[in-house]
């Protein structure tokens, strides 16, 4: 069980463009983020933050228990990285 999402960020922006990931409500989600600068990923709604740096991928696992669409952004650059659609 559980969904793993891997995202690569360059200069605060997602390398493959902004994608929307669908997750079933109450499923377990792991987000792994690889980046070329030190930054933090902010998951709106869930208000979770995960840090990452060059050579140090960030990883966070949580239960997707809030239904809706949530934006995930880089904290310092303030760029949209992806969207989570829960439910």
């Amino acid at each position: 069980m559980g969904t793993t999402i891997e995202v690569e960020v360059a200069g605060g922006k997602p390398v493959d463009g902004v994608q929307r990931y669908r997750i079933d409500a109450r499923d377990s989600v792991t987000i792994i983020v690889v980046g070329d600068t030190a930054d933090e990923l902010h998951i709106h709604g869930y208000d979770l933050v995960v840090g990452f740096a060059p050579g140090q991928p960030g990883s966070i696992t949580f239960e997707a228990n809030i239904p809706g669409i949530f934006e995930v952004e880089t904290h310092h650059h303030g760029d949209l990285v992806m969207e989570l659609q829960v439910g």
Partner: peptide, 17 residues
């Protein structure tokens, strides 16, 4: 400072389609 691009200025979630 968060440069949010959310649909409604404020708020952190969007409705499901």
């Amino acid at each position: 400072m968060l440069n949010t691009v959310l649909a409604h200025g404020v708020g952190s979630r969007g409705d499901l389609p």
